[in-house]
Design a protein around this nucleic acid. Structure first.
Length: 568
RNA sequence: CGGGGUGUAGCGCAGCCUGGUAGCGCAACUGCUUUGGGAGCAGUGGGUCGGGAGUUCGAAUCUCUCCACCCCGACCA
């Protein structure tokens, strides 16, 4: 490709709408253009990257034996009513009707459609297992789309759905998909981690997420420093480093704490360790009342764990302040587990604290030297906190480290949730009709592009891994339009590269060298060759890798050999 | 959904308080010079000032209203 014929449009200044680095660079490098909130066009340069991602996914999925198909984005309401999700799905599902007033939606995912295809075509266990996939546009009407294509409303996803006659068969395909995903992310050339995960609203039991590691990632993932344990922080079981409670050493006292509402205020003012403070969170119960959750001062509540507790409203809802005042008689900020007359759950770690400080359930008063068992009943202990760096690994090996990641892949064992609802059945070897067992496997194709940038950028712009780069090699001829020597050499090199199948961008624009260099660095071309009169006189060309500190001068006679080495 | 903010040339912004010819930088176009790190000079084009209504002799500016977009929040216990 010649730069003069390519739609290469770069910005020096960062558009204000972009907050995170990948979004900024995607706009500056001209990969995408925004059309509406959360809706983007993929420009020629961006599309080249997107296709790289798609092709790697497609090749590896095909290799695994999965079959590609393509389902519609517009789907009839009937299917969604059948699965029950027409009502379950909130406003995220974009609904509309056609000219005949038939209800339709834009597909946020395709379980219903694939189940419908399945039940029409597949009648026998002999046709199983089978794994269908597509690379297709999804629409989810997010409350707040942000971060460019990282969380957009319209996006491209690879979604696969497998069907089985039993759990063993599902497990085999699930394991195969796990391996296939690992192969895919290896080929992307990105640092990633597979973790145990919550299956969320999709349903089902076992699930794993694949995260591209990046400090700016929205998810925290916990992994052991000594084993292969890795889980989303939402999922990781919290184990207290402490295993028993100390003996009470002091008498219970009530102290006045006017104006001290937060744990930080309290610990700071009284000069005590936040770990000695307990915080009491009040959430709605499932019968319009309240439930108290008690945590150590330095710990964070894990909402997913909490909403699974008996009697707690799901989804978890922090209680309204007025309601707390009405039922408990005092304000938040002075609450504590002692003498609290509502169902109370205490986090394991909090139950190990002795001589603790907590709210006195009287405004502007706290209790000090409080103790479980002595000053109130022994607590009902549960795991409701997020793990922290340094906690013991749940598998008993090593301790946990925390990294941030961007979720780009997720695989689930769905079981029979959809097949029962949609009557997707087959005849088994006994001639009996059984609901098929399903798995589903997603990769956020457009998100992979953003995640790759989020992980691979510097102050000059993007640096693509070779596998995702829109072009592999940039040829920058200096004085191309004045020097016949430079022009001829550059043209010849360009033709040579094309014949070798190298994806090459010849910068034949009549611009100054600095413009070429900064553009090629911004768009992230991994390799660059500079040709100049000065170099040619010395019978040399210059090479620089995108991440190299220094360029190197190489004899022209070695050019062919050099290209062989670089691109084979 | 709640709160905050912003809409002026393709991009980044000033002008608004105190109403009176719509500006600056980048980008684009033309010409000359320059040619190893986002060049210099000279010139050119490009705007229903987000939409509508109102006040006024006169509105980018004041008032009302609608729309769009951005950010924050849903953990003070």
């Amino acid at each position: 490709m010649k730069a003069s014929c390519f739609h290469l449009i770069t910005l020096k200044e960062t558009p204000v709408e972009a907050e995170i680095i990948s979004h900024q660079l995607m706009l500056r490098a001209g990969l995408i253009r925004r059309l509406a909130s959360g809706i983007y066009s993929w420009m020629p340069l961006g599309l080249r990257v997107l296709r790289k991602v798609e092709n790697i996914v497609r090749e590896e999925m095909n290799k695994s034996g999965a079959l590609e198909l393509l389902m519609p984005s517009v789907q009839p309401a009937e299917l969604w009513q059948e699965s029950g999700r027409w009502d379950q799905f909130g406003p995220e599902l974009l609904r509309f009707h056609d000219r005949h007033q038939r209800d339709c939606c834009l597909g946020p995912t395709h379980e219903e459609v694939i189940a419908d295809i399945f039940r029409r075509d597949i009648k026998s266990y002999k046709q199983l297992p089978v794994n269908f996939y597509q690379i297709q546009t999804k629409f989810r009407d997010e409350i707040r789309p942000r971060f460019g294509v990282m969380r957009s409303r319209e996006f491209i996803m690879k979604d696969a759905y497998s069907f089985h006659v039993n759990q063993e068969s599902l497990q085999q395909t699930y394991d195969l998909m796990y391996q296939t995903y690992s192969n895919i992310f290896d080929r992307f050339g990105l640092a990633y981690r597979a973790v145990n995960a919550d299956s969320g609203s999709i349903g089902g039991s076992t699930s794993n997420e694949f995260h591209v590691l990046a400090d700016s990632g929205e998810d925290a993932i916990a992994f052991s420093d000594q084993s292969d344990y890795a889980a989303n922080v939402e999922m990781a079981a919290a184990i207290s480093p402490q295993s028993e409670r100390g003996q009470p050493e002091a008498e219970l006292e009530t102290i006045d704490t006017p104006g001290l509402h937060t744990i930080e205020d309290l610990a700071g003012k009284l000069d005590i360790d936040v770990k000695k403070c307990l915080k009491t969170l009040i959430v709605d119960s499932d019968d319009d009342g309240l439930v108290a959750l008690v945590l150590r001062g330095d710990h964070e509540l894990n909402p997913l764990k909490a909403e699974r507790l008996p009697g707690v409203a799901s989804p978890l809802q922090m209680a309204d302040r007025e309601k707390i005042k009405t039922i408990l008689g005092n304000d938040i900020g002075s609450l504590g587990p002692i003498g609290l007359d509502i169902p109370t759950f205490v986090d394991n770690s909090a139950s190990f604290v002795s001589d603790f400080i907590c709210g006195a359930n009287v405004n502007d008063q706290h209790l000090i030297n409080a103790n479980w068992g002595r000053d109130c009943d022994e607590p009902e202990t549960v795991d409701i906190r997020n793990v922290q760096e340094g906690d013991p690994s749940p598998d008993g090996q090593g301790s946990l480290k925390i990294l941030r990641g961007i979720e780009v892949g997720h695989i689930f064992q769905l079981g029979q949730k959809y097949s029962v609802a949609m009557q997707a059945t087959v005849l088994d070897e006994n001639g009996k009709s059984v609901a098929t067992t399903m798995g589903c496997y997603g990769i956020g194709v457009t998100r992979v592009v953003a995640a790759a940038i989020e992980q691979n950028n510097d102050d000059r712009g993007i640096y693509w891994p070779d596998s995702l780069a829109p072009f592999h090699l940039a040829i920058c001829p200096l004085n191309y339009h004045k020097s016949d020597d430079v022009k001829n050499t550059a043209d010849q090199l360009y033709q040579d590269c094309l014949q070798r199948g190298i994806e090459v961008l010849l910068d034949d624009r009549p611009v100054r060298p600095g413009v070429m260099f900064s553009d090629m660095e911004l768009i992230g071309v991994p390799h660059r060759i500079v040709l100049s009169d000065r170099g040619l006189k010395a019978e040399q060309f210059e090479y620089k890798g995108r991440r190299d500190e220094e360029s190197q001068d190489i004899n022209l006679t070695e050019l062919s050999e050099f290209l062989d080495k670089l691109f084979n």
